[in-house]
Computed example of a mutant assay.
Amino acid sequence: MKSGGAARLNRNAPFWLNLMYLPALLLFLLFIVYPFLKGVQISFTNWNGFSQSYKWIGFDNYKRMFSDPNIGVVIRNTLIYGVGSTLLQNIFGLLYALLLNKSIKIRGLARTIVYLPVIVSGLIMGYIFYFFFQFRGGAFNDVLELFGMAPVNMLGDPNLNVWIIMLVNSFQFMGTAMIIYLAGLQSISKDYFEAADIDGANAWVKFKNVTLPLLMPSITINVVLNLIGGLKLFDAIMALTGGGPGYASQSMSTMMYKTYFSSQDAGYASAIGILMFLMISVFSIIALQYLRKKEVN
């Protein structure tokens, strides 16, 4: 009866009350939808980013993008940042949540320490780790030289710098995953664990058959958020390597930025941005739909 009454109340609400959503809708259209549609339009032009005149060139920017010899490396790097960061953030975020959900004396302090990097700017975090990994004078190489070993140019090595960036991004944001997992763990009723104890289940069986299934909503949220954040990673890359050497550590976001501002090729940069948008949308929607099916009602 209450739900029916509430529904009737909503339908009979004054007309002006139904207009309260309009400011938010207008802001969304102005700052999200319009720039996106403008970007789609620009991707079909040869606009240089500052001239008042430009020419419509159809799909030339998209043809150029898919024939670009560097686009494969950039897409691979973007996937490493996205998928790799998602895996590490969720694994370590869950481990920290399981540990800090227990009754230990310093759990409040420990939670704060794990979460603290999240509130630091990604650019600042990148610069902090730059001074750790840099070739000359970096803390890591100072330790190697202390033991008589030669320094390693990790940020200049194409085989290492992508993975270092992914690790730095994972380290910074695993605190977010931990907080979401902690909320999920604290919402699980203790009755399930008591029933499992009565059945003689050990810690692993309880985790696999009780904790993990009931944490699926938290896993869904974390995976989708981490995936989106990793696929559009920008600031840590710019601080650590600037996308170099060459295109070795560039993501689609840094390639788009450099194409627009350094090469003054706004049309091509917009085409890269549209491809990045489609990649993020496809991966996040697939992950969301797949994980939603795994959730326990």
Rank of each mutant, 00 (worst) to 15 (best):
P151F: 06
L182V: 07
M20S: 13
L214K: 10
A97V: 06
R76S: 11
G84Y: 02
K2P: 06
P245V: 02
A177H: 02
T211C: 02
I91P: 03
I198N: 15
P217H: 12
D68L: 12
V33P: 04
D142W: 11
L22K: 07
G58L: 05
N297W: 06
Y247F: 12
R76M: 06
S187V: 04
Y81F: 11
M65C: 04
M238D: 07
D191W: 05
S253Q: 05
L98T: 08
L98F: 04
F50E: 11
G93C: 01
N12K: 15
P69I: 05
V143C: 02
I119K: 07
D68S: 14
L116T: 11
Y290W: 07
F132A: 15
G230E: 00
N90V: 03
A239C: 04
G230N: 07
S170L: 01
L185K: 15
R11H: 13
S53E: 09
E145T: 12
A239L: 00
S85C: 08
R292P: 13
L185F: 13
R64M: 08
Y127A: 02
R111D: 01
V40M: 14
Y54I: 08
N12Q: 14
E194T: 12
A239P: 03
I237N: 00
N48V: 10
D191L: 05
L25T: 13
L88W: 04
W16E: 13
L109F: 15
A97C: 10
G230M: 02
Q250D: 05
L29E: 06
Q172E: 07
I228E: 01
S43A: 06
I80C: 00
G82C: 00
S103E: 14
R8V: 15
L9I: 11
G72F: 08
N46S: 13
L19I: 09
K55C: 13
G108T: 13
G148H: 07
V282R: 01
N90S: 00
A150E: 15
T112G: 12
A269W: 06
Y257K: 09
F135C: 11
T259M: 06
I42G: 04
F28S: 05
K55D: 15
T241S: 05
I91M: 00
S281F: 14
T112A: 13
Q289F: 06
M174F: 13
V83F: 08
F140M: 13
S51G: 11
I71M: 08
L185H: 15
I188Y: 07
Y192R: 02
F15N: 12
N12M: 14
Y247I: 05
Y268N: 04
K293G: 09
F28G: 01
L79C: 03
S251Q: 02
A203T: 11
A239I: 01
A195Q: 14
K63H: 15
Y96E: 02
M20V: 10
M166N: 03
L26M: 09
T78M: 00
Q41I: 10
L98Q: 10
I164V: 09
L22W: 11
G242D: 08
V120L: 05
D142C: 10
A110E: 08
K63G: 12
F261T: 09
N226E: 04
L29T: 10
A271Q: 03
F31R: 09
P23I: 03
A177D: 07
M256Q: 11
N222E: 03
N159A: 12
N297V: 15
L29I: 09
L116W: 12
F173G: 04
F171Y: 14
L240N: 04
A266K: 03
N161A: 15
A248Y: 01
G138R: 07
